[in-house]
Amino acid sequence: MYNYIKSIVLLLFVSITSCSDVIDVEVQEGQSRLVIQASLDWEKGTTGNEQIVKLSTSTEFFDTTSNTAVTGASVSVTNDVSGAEFIFIDQNNGEYTTSEFVPVLNESYTLTVIHNGETYSANETMMTVTEITDLYQGLEDGFDDEELELHVEFTDPEDEDNFYLFKFQKQGDLLPEFEVGDDEFVNGNELDWWYEIEEDEDTDKIEALAPGDVVTIEMYGISEAYYGYMDILIDQIGGVGIFSATPVAVKGNCINLTNPDNYAHGYFRLTEVNKTSYTFE
């Protein structure tokens, strides 16, 4: 809900501003950190046995050349309830995989990564997600009532606080788009989440959704803490304008037990996910 309001403020502003261009800017160079992308996603209808953890390092902001993959680390995930441990095998390209993971909803897991003699750890619960009840296209809604938008319908469970992460990607686009939502003002209601692409009239680089476009949809049920993390991250993706919150350093849940100041970027999440796609007519 807040995100509606946030977007509107930004849009109001964008609608009256005229001119933007890409310029050279000098930025500071911060400490290089380990980046942990431990997204253990359990697609509905699958066993969820196959999982990947990706390790890399952060670089200077404009760097495009460095190989950031981290190899030689040890990665494991433990179910805190059963004590079962799952070892992830180093693929020597920054990816660590297992095909034996056993996801159990609402149970707590611990991630352990040992890299360069330092031990990183994170704790998270496997979250559930409600099913998508309907998927259709429309024209009237969205920010622009003349452009197509995608509607994702689902029913918010009433008994608990729910947090959602959506990932939309139009086929052919380089970058996906993320959105988060919570049920504070809509608890227990049937919800219609819409996704629309705002055409960039100045550059023609961004085009609105059109018949024939295929959009993949991923809908995750996430923890409140991860919601908080992604909420900031999403606000800061693609840049922070004049009416956005002052950008901040985002800290995930991967802490460094050996040297607390050297915390890792990234997140250890366990989520159930609906994956589907939609072709516009």
Partner: peptide, 13 residues
């Protein structure tokens, strides 16, 4: 003051 890859995008720190 830095960037990293996360979930298919480059995130600024």
């Amino acid at each position: 003051n830095g960037q990293y890859e996360y979930e298919g995008i480059s995130v600024a720190s």
